[in-house]
Design a protein around this nucleic acid. Structure first.
Length: 335
DNA sequence: TGTCCACGGGAAAGAAAGGTGG
DNA sequence: CCACCTTTCTTTCCCGTGGACA
């Protein structure tokens, strides 16, 4: 049934990307000077989740890598590497220059020096950049002449408004690539591509793909997770031989949870409890949240810490907040 | 309009991680 | 093996700001 499991993972970068030609060209053009050894433009990729932001970044850099050997690139996700040192460490390692440096006890400037000494152009792909704790890492990277930044975020306007004005003006000229949610038809193409690469021919009913595309509503990550879970369900089942709309219906809720749980699993227990409280309540105001948390947590963290955690959950896009000061309310983020 | 309380920036203390020298 | 060092990362303390509510 499953021929190539990797093709069913959302992190898989296919040989050809459907319906993103314009954006790919825009991004390639922005990075074009790198192939001649000049520094490229900084660029943004923005769009809702599941619109292929990370995938097109990796795709375009992969293309560039095949054309020239003078370009190195590194990828970090700011949700798992929120600290400046951790993030720079990973970037330097991907450039192959930080291998001798220890993770703790190395000054951030050391990584920057190493990147600068590289006699190649370097592209730093910084995913989920809105979750970055201290933005002066961006300023530091901007200072390094042979480093270009490719910043990935959901909405560049909210990202910009949280940025301090010095970096704001520097990044204002950066190329912006915007991604819209996929249409139903586009989603079907993407799913067919994955089916062809990953599954035995004929095991997926066409109307099942239609059902997946409906549920995914433009979010390719969710669509692909649905396809993967459906395939696994059929493999483990004795009765079912084919992926049908009924199978999709059975696993739809579960697939939604899988994506969310993957993020929630990484949280510390206090953050997870705060998230659980918001999730159970749907919407909750600040003081109710505080008393609920204190009641359920034996030794609660200080109130300032609790607020920092909540802000982090907001950055991770697990919750949303409205209002300010005493009127602040917390709400579970949908989708 | 005054009191209450939550927010959030920033400093600073504390804990943890990794390395070094005796 | 242990004491000690450097730097990161987390948590707390301090405090000015501002919305809610009587």
């Amino acid at each position: 049934m499953i021929v190539e499991p990797r093709a069913l993972r959302e992190s898989y970068v296919p040989q050809e990307l459907h319906h993103r030609e314009g954006q790919i060209n825009l991004l390639s053009t922005a990075l074009r000077p790198l192939a001649e050894g000049d520094s490229g433009e900084d660029a943004f990729i923005c769009g809702p989740s599941g619109t292929g932001k990370t995938t097109i970044a990796k795709f375009v850099l992969g293309q560039l890598e095949r054309e020239t050997s003078d370009v190195q690139w590194g990828y970090i996700n700011c949700i798992s590497n929120s600290g400046k040192a951790a993030a720079l460490h990973k970037l330097a390692r991907e450039a192959g220059v930080g291998l001798d440096l220890r993770r703790k006890g190395t000054h951030p400037a050391t990584y920057l020096d190493r990147l600068q000494d590289l006699d190649q152009q370097f592209v730093a792909v910084i995913d989920e950049v809105h979750a970055l704790a201290d933005n002066d890492m961006l300023a530091s990277l901007y200072e390094v002449p042979n480093v270009s930044m490719l910043l990935i975020t959901v909405d560049e306007n909210t990202f910009f408004s949280n940025l301090d004005s010095r970096i704001q003006s520097r990044l204002r000229g950066a190329e912006r690539v915007k991604l819209r949610p996929y249409t139903h038809r586009e989603m079907l193409d993407i799913l067919r591509g994955r089916v062809k690469a990953g599954l035995k021919p004929g095991v997926v009913r066409e109307n099942a793909l239609d059902r997946i595309a409906d549920l995914a509503a433009g979010d390719a990550r969710y669509g692909i997770t649905l396809l993967r879970r459906a395939a696994r369900q059929v493999v483990n089942s004795d009765e079912q031989r084919y992926i049908t709309p009924a199978v999709i219906g059975d696993i739809a809720d579960e697939a939604r949870d899988v994506i969310r749980d993957k993020r929630v699993d990484d949280l510390s227990s206090d953050k997870r409890l705060l998230y659980e409280i918001v999730r159970e309540a749907g919407t909750i105001n600040a003081s109710e949240l505080r008393s609920e948390y204190k009641e359920r947590q034996g030794n609660p963290v200080a109130s300032r810490t609790r607020r920092k955690y909540l802000r982090a959950l907001e950055h991770y896009e697990l919750i949303e907040t409205y209002g300010s000061a005493r009127g602040k309310r917390f709400q579970l983020r949908k989708g």
